[in-house]
Amino acid sequence: MDERIVMVDSGTGLRLTEEQLDERSAVATVQLRRRGVRAGDTVLICLPVGPDLLVSTNAVIAAGGVVWPLPVDLDAATLRDRIQESDARVMISNVRRALEAAEESRVRIIMSVADLSAAHSYPTSR
């Protein structure tokens, strides 16, 4: 596959190739499906601008969902209101304030960036 660079993280300078983007998005989509995201579902994403945000957005769209982005710099009250308003069941975020704002919402599952990538590594005995 071509090594085309599709994004550069302005903070770290890390480059994301097209292959990496496709691969990570595909895995993330599967993880979202497993957690019950279905066509038409709203999924909140509160992540800083960068590769993770791009991957998450792609994955939600590929899973048939509706992306409901939340800027990370919103104040707590606004975050809370937007989360309530979305009526989303799933949120993707590693942002502490967003996790706290989701406390009394109707969000059932909060996925971290790690949850999107990890192939499930359950402890197994055999």
């Binding site: 998005s25 499906r33 590929a62």
Partner: peptide
């Protein structure tokens, strides 16, 4: 986006 959805389905 459609390609991505097919890939997810296959997986």
């Amino acid at each position: 986006a459609t390609v991505a959805r097919h890939i997810a389905n296959i997986m």
